[in-house]
Amino acid sequence: MPRRSYDHYCAVSRALDIVGDRWNLLVVRELCSGPRRYSDLFADLPGISTDVLAARLKELERDDILTRRKVGPRTATAVYELTPTGMALRPALEALSAWGTEHLGERRPTDAVRAHWFALPLGRAVAEVLPIGTATVHIGDTVLHYNITAAGITHHDGPAPASDLEFHLDLATAAEVATGARPLPDHSPSAL
Protein backbone atom coordinates (compact mmCIF):
# COMPACT_ATOMS: atom_id res chain seq x y z
CA MET A 1 0.00 0.00 0.00
CA PRO A 2 1.50 3.37 -0.94
CA ARG A 3 2.27 5.72 1.89
CA ARG A 4 -0.14 8.58 2.39
CA SER A 5 1.41 11.97 2.88
CA TYR A 6 0.19 15.35 3.97
CA ASP A 7 2.55 16.79 1.32
CA HIS A 8 3.48 19.68 3.60
CA TYR A 9 7.07 20.83 3.79
CA CYS A 10 6.87 20.88 7.57
CA ALA A 11 8.71 18.86 10.22
CA VAL A 12 5.50 17.98 12.10
CA SER A 13 3.87 16.88 8.85
CA ARG A 14 6.82 14.66 7.94
CA ALA A 15 6.82 13.09 11.38
CA LEU A 16 3.10 12.37 11.08
CA ASP A 17 3.65 10.91 7.61
CA ILE A 18 5.75 8.24 9.37
CA VAL A 19 4.13 7.70 12.77
CA GLY A 20 0.77 9.45 12.46
CA ASP A 21 -1.30 6.49 11.25
CA ARG A 22 -3.73 5.04 13.75
CA TRP A 23 -1.98 2.58 16.12
CA ASN A 24 1.61 3.50 15.17
CA LEU A 25 2.47 5.45 18.31
CA LEU A 26 0.72 2.86 20.47
CA VAL A 27 2.94 0.17 18.93
CA VAL A 28 5.94 2.38 19.83
CA ARG A 29 4.54 2.79 23.36
CA GLU A 30 4.37 -0.99 23.71
CA LEU A 31 8.00 -1.37 22.62
CA CYS A 32 9.42 1.39 24.85
CA SER A 33 10.03 -1.02 27.71
CA GLY A 34 11.66 -3.71 25.60
CA PRO A 35 11.16 -6.28 22.83
CA ARG A 36 7.77 -7.88 22.33
CA ARG A 37 6.46 -10.84 20.36
CA TYR A 38 3.63 -10.34 17.89
CA SER A 39 1.24 -12.17 20.23
CA ASP A 40 2.22 -9.85 23.12
CA LEU A 41 1.59 -6.79 20.98
CA PHE A 42 -1.75 -8.14 19.82
CA ALA A 43 -2.81 -8.93 23.40
CA ASP A 44 -1.81 -5.48 24.70
CA LEU A 45 -3.41 -3.50 21.87
CA PRO A 46 -7.09 -4.38 22.36
CA GLY A 47 -9.16 -3.34 19.38
CA ILE A 48 -6.46 -3.73 16.73
CA SER A 49 -7.03 -6.37 14.07
CA THR A 50 -4.31 -8.84 13.13
CA ASP A 51 -4.19 -7.39 9.60
CA VAL A 52 -3.74 -3.83 10.85
CA LEU A 53 -1.08 -4.87 13.37
CA ALA A 54 0.86 -6.77 10.71
CA ALA A 55 0.65 -3.80 8.34
CA ARG A 56 1.76 -1.31 11.01
CA LEU A 57 4.70 -3.49 12.02
CA LYS A 58 5.85 -3.77 8.40
CA GLU A 59 5.51 -0.02 7.86
CA LEU A 60 7.36 0.84 11.07
CA GLU A 61 10.09 -1.62 10.16
CA ARG A 62 10.37 -0.10 6.68
CA ASP A 63 10.70 3.35 8.25
CA ASP A 64 13.45 2.17 10.68
CA ILE A 65 11.30 2.74 13.75
CA LEU A 66 11.48 -0.90 14.80
CA THR A 67 13.27 -4.05 13.83
CA ARG A 68 12.16 -7.65 13.74
CA ARG A 69 14.58 -10.18 15.19
CA LYS A 70 14.33 -13.97 15.32
CA VAL A 71 14.91 -15.53 18.73
CA GLY A 72 14.80 -18.95 20.26
CA PRO A 73 16.58 -22.22 19.71
CA ARG A 74 15.35 -22.59 16.16
CA THR A 75 14.71 -18.89 15.59
CA ALA A 76 11.06 -19.74 15.07
CA THR A 77 9.88 -16.84 17.21
CA ALA A 78 10.31 -13.21 16.24
CA VAL A 79 10.40 -10.20 18.53
CA TYR A 80 9.98 -6.58 17.61
CA GLU A 81 12.07 -3.89 19.22
CA LEU A 82 12.67 -0.20 18.72
CA THR A 83 15.66 0.99 16.75
CA PRO A 84 17.56 4.09 17.91
CA THR A 85 15.28 6.06 15.56
CA GLY A 86 12.26 4.55 17.30
CA MET A 87 13.68 5.19 20.78
CA ALA A 88 14.12 8.83 19.77
CA LEU A 89 10.30 9.05 19.78
CA ARG A 90 10.24 8.57 23.56
CA PRO A 91 10.31 12.34 24.32
CA ALA A 92 7.31 12.77 22.02
CA LEU A 93 5.49 9.99 23.86
CA GLU A 94 6.45 11.59 27.19
CA ALA A 95 5.01 14.91 26.02
CA LEU A 96 1.82 13.25 24.74
CA SER A 97 1.52 11.34 28.01
CA ALA A 98 1.89 14.49 30.10
CA TRP A 99 -0.65 16.33 27.97
CA GLY A 100 -3.02 13.35 27.81
CA THR A 101 -2.90 12.76 31.57
CA GLU A 102 -4.66 16.09 32.07
CA HIS A 103 -7.42 14.92 29.71
CA LEU A 104 -7.73 11.32 30.92
CA GLY A 105 -10.74 11.82 33.15
CA GLU A 106 -12.55 8.91 34.77
CA ARG A 107 -12.20 5.43 33.33
CA ARG A 108 -15.23 4.54 31.23
CA PRO A 109 -16.75 1.05 31.44
CA THR A 110 -15.64 0.38 27.86
CA ASP A 111 -12.01 1.43 28.44
CA ALA A 112 -9.41 -1.33 28.30
CA VAL A 113 -6.51 -0.94 30.71
CA ARG A 114 -3.11 -2.57 31.15
CA ALA A 115 -0.85 -1.85 34.10
CA HIS A 116 2.15 -1.05 31.91
CA TRP A 117 0.19 1.70 30.15
CA PHE A 118 0.85 3.80 33.26
CA ALA A 119 4.62 3.48 32.81
CA LEU A 120 5.20 6.98 31.41
CA PRO A 121 3.26 8.99 34.01
CA LEU A 122 4.45 6.73 36.84
CA GLY A 123 8.02 7.40 35.74
CA ARG A 124 7.44 11.11 36.30
CA ALA A 125 6.01 10.37 39.76
CA VAL A 126 8.97 8.15 40.65
CA ALA A 127 11.40 10.86 39.51
CA GLU A 128 9.79 13.29 41.96
CA VAL A 129 10.75 10.92 44.80
CA LEU A 130 14.04 9.70 43.30
CA PRO A 131 15.63 12.35 41.07
CA ILE A 132 18.57 10.08 40.17
CA GLY A 133 18.66 6.32 40.54
CA THR A 134 16.82 3.11 39.81
CA ALA A 135 13.39 2.08 41.08
CA THR A 136 11.32 -1.06 40.65
CA VAL A 137 7.54 -0.69 40.52
CA HIS A 138 5.16 -3.61 40.97
CA ILE A 139 1.60 -3.08 39.74
CA GLY A 140 -0.15 -6.31 40.61
CA ASP A 141 1.70 -8.96 38.58
CA THR A 142 3.34 -6.39 36.29
CA VAL A 143 6.88 -5.35 37.19
CA LEU A 144 8.72 -2.42 35.63
CA HIS A 145 11.89 -0.67 36.53
CA TYR A 146 12.97 2.89 35.93
CA ASN A 147 16.40 4.32 35.35
CA ILE A 148 16.38 8.01 36.18
CA THR A 149 19.40 10.03 35.12
CA ALA A 150 20.13 13.66 34.34
CA ALA A 151 19.38 12.75 30.72
CA GLY A 152 15.84 11.55 31.52
CA ILE A 153 13.71 8.58 32.51
CA THR A 154 13.56 5.19 30.84
CA HIS A 155 11.46 2.21 31.82
CA HIS A 156 12.04 -1.46 31.20
CA ASP A 157 10.22 -4.74 31.75
CA GLY A 158 10.97 -6.65 34.91
CA PRO A 159 12.74 -5.73 38.13
CA ALA A 160 15.99 -3.81 38.11
CA PRO A 161 19.14 -5.79 38.86
CA ALA A 162 19.73 -3.32 41.69
CA SER A 163 17.07 -0.81 42.79
CA ASP A 164 17.36 2.16 45.09
CA LEU A 165 13.63 2.09 45.81
CA GLU A 166 10.77 -0.33 45.36
CA PHE A 167 7.05 0.43 45.10
CA HIS A 168 4.10 -1.99 45.31
CA LEU A 169 0.84 -0.70 43.82
CA ASP A 170 -2.47 -2.15 42.82
CA LEU A 171 -4.00 -1.04 39.52
CA ALA A 172 -6.35 1.49 41.10
CA THR A 173 -3.51 3.14 43.02
CA ALA A 174 -1.31 3.18 39.90
CA ALA A 175 -4.10 4.96 38.03
CA GLU A 176 -4.51 7.52 40.80
CA VAL A 177 -0.77 8.20 40.93
CA ALA A 178 -0.57 8.38 37.12
CA THR A 179 -3.38 10.94 36.95
CA GLY A 180 -1.98 12.98 39.83
CA ALA A 181 -4.94 12.23 42.12
CA ARG A 182 -2.55 11.00 44.79
CA PRO A 183 1.21 10.81 45.39
CA LEU A 184 3.14 7.59 45.31
CA PRO A 185 2.56 5.62 48.51
CA ASP A 186 5.39 5.00 50.90
CA HIS A 187 8.27 3.14 49.37
CA SER A 188 10.87 0.90 50.75
CA PRO A 189 14.55 0.75 50.03
CA SER A 190 14.95 -2.16 47.70
CA ALA A 191 15.92 -5.46 49.17
CA LEU A 192 17.60 -6.41 45.89
Rank of each mutant, 00 (worst) to 15 (best):
Ser163Asp: 00
Thr50Arg: 15
Ile139Val: 14
Val28Asn: 05
Leu144Arg: 02
Leu184Cys: 11
Ser39Ile: 13
Ala181Tyr: 05
Leu53Thr: 04
Lys70Pro: 00
Leu25Lys: 06
Val19Lys: 05
Arg182Asp: 10
Cys10Met: 13
Ala112Tyr: 11
Leu120Gln: 08
Tyr38Ile: 01
Pro161Arg: 00
Gly180Gln: 12
Asp40Arg: 09
Leu53His: 03
Val27Gly: 02
Pro183Leu: 07
His187Ala: 15
Lys70Glu: 04
Ser5Asp: 11
Ile18Met: 12
Gly47Phe: 09
Leu82Arg: 09
His187Lys: 11
Ser5Lys: 08
Ala55Met: 10
Pro189Asn: 03
Ala181Cys: 12
Arg107Cys: 04
Ala175Trp: 03
Thr101Glu: 08
Thr85His: 12
Pro189Ile: 05
Asp186Gly: 15
Gly152Ile: 07
Ala151Val: 13
Pro84Trp: 03
Leu60Arg: 07
Ala119Thr: 03
Arg3Ser: 11
Val126Met: 05
Leu184Glu: 13
Ala178Ile: 06
Thr149Asn: 13
Thr136Arg: 01
Glu61Trp: 05
Asp170Thr: 01
Val126Gln: 04
Ala54Ile: 02
Pro131Cys: 09
Leu16Asn: 14
Ala115Asp: 07
Gly123Lys: 09
Pro109Ser: 09
Thr142Gln: 10
Val28Thr: 03
Ala78Arg: 06
Asp141Phe: 06
Leu122Glu: 06
Gly34Pro: 05
Arg62Trp: 10
Ala125Ile: 00
Gly72Trp: 00
Leu89Arg: 01
Ala95Lys: 07
Gly47His: 01
Arg56Thr: 08
Ala92Phe: 07
Asn147Thr: 15
Pro46Val: 03
Ser33His: 01
Tyr6Gln: 14
Ile148Ser: 10
Leu53Asp: 03
Arg4Leu: 02
Ala15Glu: 09
Arg36Gln: 12
Gly86Met: 04
Val113Cys: 06
Thr136Cys: 04
Pro2Val: 02
Tyr9Arg: 15
Ile48Arg: 03
Leu171Glu: 12
Ser39Arg: 14
Leu104Phe: 08
Asn147Met: 14
Asp141Asn: 13
Pro84Lys: 05
Cys32Pro: 00
Pro2Lys: 06
Ile18Val: 15
Arg37Ser: 15
Thr85Gly: 06
Thr77Arg: 06
Ala135Val: 09
Arg114Lys: 13
Thr110Ile: 04
Leu93Trp: 11
Ser188Ile: 13
Asp164Met: 01
Leu57Met: 06
Asp111Leu: 02
Ala11Met: 15
Phe118Val: 10
Cys10Lys: 08
Leu57Ser: 03
Arg107Val: 02
His145Ile: 02
Ile48Phe: 07
Ala95Ser: 13
Ser49Gln: 13
Gly140Ile: 14
Val27Thr: 01
Ala92Gly: 07
Ala43Val: 01
Leu16Arg: 14
Glu30His: 04
Cys32Asn: 03
Ser49Thr: 15
Met87Val: 01
Ala178Asn: 05
Phe118Thr: 14
Gly20Asn: 13
Thr142Met: 06
Val52Asn: 08
Gly152Arg: 12
Ser13Cys: 13
Arg182Tyr: 05
Leu93Tyr: 01
